[in-house]
Amino acid sequence: MKKITDKKILLAILGIFLLAVFWRFATLLSFPDSGVAFKKDNLVKVHPGETITQKFIAGQKGMAKVEMLLRGPGLQYQNGDEMKMFLADQNCENKLRSGNLKPSFLASNNLYEFNFARLPDSAGKTYCLKAAFTSKKSNAKSLQVFTTNDTSAPYFLNNVTLNLEYKNQPLSLRPVYGNSNMLQDFNQLNQRISQYKPWFLKHYFLWAVLILFLALSLALAVSLILL
């Protein structure tokens, strides 16, 4: 049996950490519709057992997530709070995706997200989002969901429906899209980072800087460990 030296252990630790970092990055690699700026204009109260519905048009293909804003403290998981999410077709009948609303990785106690398997042909299609709030606590407080006064956004149809009608108040929600493969994701990320940068920090130059940085950093780390 080969001796496990401290150098091999350090190389293994480095490999594990870097794998964890880039694995995490791969899970974060999706593109919120940047045309939507979240606003906390008004609030809709949702009591346990109630469902809110919002129709919207997906602007791009590959929708894989929907983000929503809840007022703090949001879902109290310790009380068994749950926001069951359903994505259906424009008639709100045929369920396409379902899941639970979860807090975002961003340090905001308002932002929540509903992840689902990517819809490749979502561009231009109308979807119906239903959010059903349940709680195991008998006297649970209502959940407060933010709506927006911005009716100019082209993605929101009708108003939030609950028991009452809320005039001109779509939910503060934002679709998130992903590409069919990681190379397309990296290309799109390169495009985003390149915007409002000088020519020598855009596109191919940015790729060059990034690739050199990654390759040489790894070489340096290995060299120092094997020193």
Binding site: A37, L69, S104, S108, L111, Q191, Q195, Y196
Partner: peptide
């Protein structure tokens, strides 16, 4: 707010 980015275009220029 922390959850807002700039409004990106679809290319390499803003």
């Amino acid at each position: 707010d922390i959850f807002n980015t700039i409004n990106f275009s679809s290319g390499y220029n803003g």
